[in-house]
Design a protein around this nucleic acid. Sequence first.
DNA 1: ATTTATATGTCGCAA
DNA 2: TTGCGACGTATAAAT
Lengths: 220, 220
Amino acid sequence: MRLVIARCQVDYAGRLTAHLPMATRLILIKADGSVSVHADDRAYKPLNWMSPPCTLVEDDGVWTVQSTKTDDSLVIGIEEILHDSSHDLGVDPGLVKDGVEAHLQQLLAENVETFGAGWRLVRREYPTPIGPVDLLCRDEAGTTVAVEVKRRGEIDGVEQLSRYLELLDRDPQLSPVRGVFAAQEIRPQARTLANDRGISCVTVDYDALRGVDDPSERLF
Amino acid sequence: MRLVIARCQVDYAGRLTAHLPMATRLILIKADGSVSVHADDRAYKPLNWMSPPCTLVEDDGVWTVQSTKTDDSLVIGIEEILHDSSHDLGVDPGLVKDGVEAHLQQLLAENVETFGAGWRLVRREYPTPIGPVDLLCRDEAGTTVAVEVKRRGEIDGVEQLSRYLELLDRDPQLSPVRGVFAAQEIRPQARTLANDRGISCVTVDYDALRGVDDPSERLF
DNA sequence: ATTTATATGTCGCAA
DNA sequence: TTGCGACGTATAAAT
């Protein structure tokens, strides 16, 4: 990893064109070949960058970064270098994440009564030709219900569920099939579209559900 | 801006939990208060980060970054510091972008004849219950046309336009409503889906359109 | 402040 | 390779 602090101007041409006037910035060159130009704000997002695979050519105050795959390019005009150091970091062992949506789906599968008393789970990840339905249930009346689980409910999710419902409803073993759109929060537009298509919306309290499920969080 | 190269381990807790084993990494501390931890790959993306507003407390080999707004926290265990330098970058003049979708939509709104002679614009951002249609036009025959503008035409855009068309077509003042999908480039699958739904596809030459519109680029 | 659409989104997985 | 969905998405525009 190479860290360069320099007065520089930058021009990017590719999916869009962008220009950075002359100023002092950090140029971060990683071992993966990537180059990014940072100001002292915008959190971790650089002003300009080039993702690998790309090549960096340093030529008399003009650094050119050219993408290998596309015709994207980054031209950095260097006026003055204030700092330049390289460091061997080695390979990173990587990070361990514990996600949200997968966990949410699992919690709901274990607590389908969240949707109503008498509900039971038929299958998680119920397969269809266009992909698995998150949860397939039967409600208290025995009607089939396909549940789509999202962390944030947006229009795309309603579309996805609609496609599943159309397919599932063709199966005489399952038909008629209701739809439930479950998410921590549901955007008004998504709710509108869901209602328009006869799909129920359920907002889920993730923390409460986790509290119900996680013994370490139980009060008794 | 402060650059620290250190052997460290990191724990993040907030919207998810994540752990980074001990390794050598870059810790980037910006003037905006943000802290990000970088490995030597993943292009410009850090392994972990904290966005401002947040506070960094350094305490005997344990750096704690606490979000001011939420209860997100980043705990960095420092084993050894290999480099530590600070640099005054000043305020960045900012970057100038060109070529985004808004500009494309504006250009097309000002040049609806791009779609055909005799076309006129009814409204830009024509409102519907599920969001605004980019351009609503009348073609040379007076037929209503909804135009969806994208930089890159993909399936999502066709779906979006389809939803608008379904709604608009219910309005007797507008019906029947045709659809036009306009983009700099249109993916084959998107084109296929559009054709299947009777939606016309128009690829737009952005540079030519800008040349038509921008007097400084005109040749005469 | 909240909601919505955009992004040089990036990233990972599966067909 | 392409398509598709998730992301600690982030961020700017519009209500």
